[in-house]
C-alpha cells in the first residue's frame, strides 16, 4: 500500500495566538480611528485594507493555514481567486452599463 502524502502537523503555541490577538485589537482601534478623518475615497480603501489584513491574520494563524499542506493552501487561494474574478466581472458589467452613475 502506498503511503499518503506526508504533512507534519504543527502545534501552534499560545504565544502566537496572543500576538495575533493583540494585533487584531490594534487594527480594530485603528479602523475606527481612521474613519473619523477626511480622506475622500481613501476612507473606504483604508477600511477595506485593514479588514483584509485582519482577515488574512485570522486565516493564517487562528485557522492554521500558515501551517497547512500545499493542497489546502492552493484550494483556498483558488477559492479567493474565483471570488475576485466574480466580483470584478459583476462590477465591470455594472460600470459599463450605467454611464454617468459612477
Amino acid at each position: 500500500m502506498s503511503e499518503p502524502t506526508h504533512h507534519t502537523h504543527t502545534v501552534v503555541p499560545p504565544r502566537v495566538y496572543a500576538t495575533v490577538f493583540g494585533i487584531l485589537l490594534c487594527f480594530t482601534a485603528l479602523t475606527v480611528f481612521a474613519s473619523y478623518f477626511e480622506l475622500g475615497t481613501f476612507n473606504a480603501v483604508v477600511a477595506l485594507a485593514i479588514a483584509v489584513i485582519k482577515a488574512v491574520l485570522v486565516i493564517l494563524f487562528f485557522m492554521h493555514i500558515r501551517y497547512s499542506s500545499r493542497l489546502t493552501k492552493l484550494t483556498i487561494s483558488a477559492g479567493f481567486f474565483t471570488l475576485i474574478v466574480l466580483l470584478l466581472m459583476t462590477m465591470t458589467d455594472y460600470i459599463s452599463r450605467a454611464w454617468g452613475m459612477w
Partner: peptide, 17 residues
C-alpha cells in the same frame, strides 16, 4: 468572525468624519 470583520467597517464606519 471574518464575516463580521468586513461587516463592521462597511456598515458602521461610512464617512464618520
Amino acid at each position: 468572525d471574518i464575516v463580521w470583520i468586513f461587516l463592521f467597517p462597511l456598515l458602521y464606519l461610512i464617512s464618520r468624519h
